[in-house]
Simulated scan of single mutants.
Amino acid sequence: MIELKSAREIERMRVTGEFVAQVLTELGERADVGVNLLDLERHARDMIRRRGAESCYWDYAPSFGKGPFRNVVCLSVNDAVLHGLPHDYTLRDGDVLSMDIAVGIDGWVADSARTVIVGAAAEEDLKLVEATEVALEAAIEAARPGNRLGDISAAIGAVAAGYGYPVNTEFGGHGLGRTMHEEPHVPNKGRAGKGLKLKAGMTLALEPWFARTTDRIVFDPDGWTIRSADGSRGAHSEHTVAITEDGPLVLTRREETPRERGEENARSVSAR
């Protein structure tokens, strides 16, 4: 069952979305050569605690996981494409780091992800991150009343095809609102004009993620971290989007930082 949100409820989700955007901005600014993933996890925990928010990840125990997730952010490095379990790893020059976080504030959830390149960026990594960003914007544009769910999926798949990347459909976007995962599932590939009709009041987490040369995945022994089956690098971009009569409303949109604008001799790329 899909719960349509009122304008007031969407505004409450926007409050959460603004905080999620702030966390991802700060984590992206801190992600640098020599920084340990556990330091990023600690900073995210501290921000959540100070805000009085609640992590949607802590104690999360879906059927595909191995026990409850006891962290507040997913940190996936290089060929780890999703659900990266924070661990004792120090970031290196050229690492591709995807960060995914969902929190609730006053009972309303927002979910977002961004990918940054640590230090010097290889052209093929820049292209991969760019593809997820472009696909996300295409998905957002398709999230309009009267369109079909397949229009969103087809928009993402078309961008992937244009960049030459395969698409995994096991993990994709989803509804959200009072909880992190609600109906419907939003695959990252599909047929335009097919599927559920989109209505104003629907709130969706749209999250294209691609690995460079495969659509197959494998799980780490930790039971959480998902890697590309062939070891190729991945990238992930995600926003929480409300469908309104006036068009899509992005609830987790971040403002560009000086680093993202290319100032301060920055060499990172992120989902905007």
Score class of each variant (00 low, 15 high):
78 N>T: 02
52 G>A: 14
16 T>S: 10
133 E>F: 00
49 R>N: 05
74 C>R: 04
161 A>F: 01
30 R>V: 00
173 G>Y: 09
96 V>H: 07
163 Y>A: 06
190 G>T: 04
51 R>C: 02
206 L>T: 01
253 R>I: 00
21 A>S: 15
250 V>L: 07
39 D>P: 00
151 D>H: 07
185 H>C: 03
43 H>D: 08
141 E>F: 11
246 D>G: 14
177 G>P: 11
253 R>M: 07
131 A>W: 06
232 S>A: 10
15 V>T: 14
148 R>K: 15
53 A>Q: 08
266 A>G: 15
164 G>L: 09
202 M>D: 05
91 L>F: 06
141 E>G: 08
253 R>A: 13
94 G>F: 08
140 I>K: 09
164 G>T: 04
177 G>K: 11
214 T>D: 09
78 N>I: 04
54 E>M: 15
132 T>N: 13
266 A>M: 00
186 V>P: 13
78 N>E: 02
215 D>L: 04
75 L>R: 07
63 S>V: 11
27 L>Y: 06
260 E>K: 02
171 F>L: 11
24 L>Q: 06
135 A>V: 05
23 V>C: 14
45 R>C: 13
226 I>D: 01
41 E>G: 06
87 H>E: 13
186 V>S: 09
210 F>Y: 15
31 A>Y: 04
262 G>Y: 02
124 E>K: 15
50 R>T: 12
258 P>Q: 05
123 E>A: 15
150 G>F: 10
106 D>L: 04
209 W>R: 04
84 G>K: 04
269 V>M: 12
11 E>W: 02
219 F>N: 02
146 G>E: 09
232 S>H: 09
125 D>V: 03
12 R>C: 04
98 S>H: 03
271 A>I: 01
44 A>G: 08
234 G>F: 03
87 H>R: 15
11 E>L: 14
124 E>W: 14
57 Y>K: 09
90 T>S: 10
165 Y>T: 03
179 T>G: 11
207 E>R: 14
162 G>D: 12
75 L>Q: 07
199 K>F: 05
129 V>T: 12
11 E>Y: 03
244 T>F: 12
99 M>Y: 01
83 H>D: 03
147 N>T: 01
10 I>S: 13
61 A>K: 10
50 R>F: 06
67 G>V: 03
52 G>P: 15
76 S>R: 07
88 D>R: 14
226 I>S: 02
192 A>L: 07
3 E>Y: 12
7 A>C: 00
85 L>R: 15
193 G>M: 12
158 A>K: 15
215 D>H: 11
203 T>G: 04
229 A>W: 05
170 E>M: 12
142 A>H: 08
257 T>P: 03
10 I>F: 12
128 L>S: 07
36 N>E: 13
187 P>M: 09
201 G>D: 07
112 S>P: 03
160 A>Q: 05
102 A>G: 15
145 P>F: 10
116 V>F: 05
129 V>K: 11
159 V>D: 08
197 K>I: 04
122 A>M: 09
26 E>T: 09
67 G>D: 07
193 G>T: 02
110 A>R: 08
229 A>V: 01
82 L>N: 02
261 R>V: 00
114 R>Q: 02
206 L>A: 10
27 L>S: 08
1 M>A: 11
269 V>Y: 14
164 G>S: 11
17 G>I: 02
130 E>Q: 14
35 V>P: 10
